[in-house]
């Protein structure tokens, strides 16, 4: 027996934790990337805002997208619902109400992660310690994920956690591809060619996928292979197809799964039928839009089927990727 409210809170707790981790990865990799590129071709910090979809809000509050303001917006700005602190705060609020459904240590770690992120915020905003700060957040989330995998009964509640995590993860992977592939390579100026590798490497690294790519693809880092790897690879945990397979395996053990599974199957067949390696930039963008719409459908179907969707007081009820609609 699993209460709808509990399922919903577990799902959103996992989504918010994953969102915090992914945001930390993005900021970290961008910092490194900028150090490797000559000043005239540095894409700067604006693409990060685009990936997370807070342009309008950012422009209003900060104006110029320089390093300091972007770091503040993405890490510590609690007015930005997508910032790391906001995500961790929402994760904790969701965890609070369902703490009895998880091992006690998991709740303690979610709590500690939020409190540490808050009290060490100055290190995250400054230049020198930012790497360690973000690494601690990534490790903190990984630790919680591992703890839950190793100590929580793999019952229905656990499947809702896994679904939340994987939908969020798949969502972030395609957002990163969308923005990076379009904006990291302004035009096809020849001056950039030597840096192409570096840029695609940064895409892989932001998903901890560089080594895995090398082992799986056994080719140099090039656009077609990277795209194929990140969309279609079955075994890499952050590849879009893999995340959808994970969601599928969760649904298989849940009751009333027919509609969600059908929706998800439609999304998966989009990926299997596609040849992203051959797509132009425009086609790629359109393809990613379709996938985003598919993710929204899957999320809404899960929500309608299992959750207390009538209740507005549930913390963290928000549409999944809102910016594709806004664009």
């Amino acid at each position: 027996m699993m209460l709808s409210r509990v399922a919903e809170n577990l799902y959103w707790m996992a989504r918010y934790l994953e969102r915090a981790e992914n945001t930390a990865r993005l900021v970290n990799v961008n910092s490194n990337l900028l150090l490797d590129l000559p000043p005239q071709v540095r894409p700067g910090w604006a693409p990060l805002i685009e990936i997370t979809g807070g342009e309008a809000q950012f422009r209003q509050a900060y104006g110029e997208a320089d390093e300091r303001s972007v770091a503040k917006f993405m890490i510590g700005d609690t007015a930005n619902p997508g910032s790391i602190l906001s995500s961790l705060g929402q994760a904790r609020e969701n965890a609070r109400t369902v703490r009895d459904y998880m091992p006690r240590e998991a709740w303690e770690q979610v709590n500690a992660l939020m409190l540490n992120a808050k009290s060490n915020l100055a290190s995250g905003l400054g230049h020198r310690r930012r790497f360690e700060y973000l690494r601690d957040i990534i490790h903190g989330v990984q630790q919680i994920t591992g703890l839950l995998a190793g100590t929580m009964t793999h019952d229905e509640g656990y499947q809702f956690l896994r679904m939340g995590r994987n939908l969020e993860r798949g969502d972030m992977t395609i957002r990163i591809i969308d923005v990076r592939s379009a904006n990291l390579l302004p035009g096809s100026s020849e001056a950039l060619t030597p840096f192409q590798n570096i840029q695609w490497m940064s895409v892989l690294k932001s998903l901890s996928g560089y080594q895995m790519y090398r082992r799986a693809m056994r080719t140099p880092v090039r656009r077609p292979e990277v795209l194929k790897f990140l969309f279609k690879e079955r075994l890499f945990p952050r590849a879009f197809y893999h995340t959808m397979m994970e969601v599928d395996s969760c649904l298989r053990v849940l009751p009333r799964r027919d509609v969600p599974i059908t929706r998800l199957a439609a999304l998966r067949s989009l990926v299997t039928a596609a040849r992203p390696e051959a797509m132009s930039q425009e086609e790629l963008h359109h393809f990613i839009d379709q996938l985003e719409q598919g993710l929204i459908m899957v999320n809404n179907t899960i929500s309608d089927t299992y959750f207390l969707s009538t209740n507005p007081a549930v913390p963290g009820r928000m549409a999944v990727p809102s910016e594709t609609e806004a664009e």
């Binding site: 027996m1 699993m2 209460l3 709808s4 409210r5 399922a7 229905e156 849940l254 009751p255 009333r256 089927t305 299992y306 207390l308 209740n311 007081a313």
Partner: peptide, 20 residues
């Protein structure tokens, strides 16, 4: 919590679970 429960037209009380 209160929002987990609903009273049906049959005057019975139900809780909302993932199974219905």
């Amino acid at each position: 919590e209160g929002r987990d429960l609903v009273v049906g037209e049959d005057d019975c009380v139900y809780m909302r679970t993932i199974e219905g």
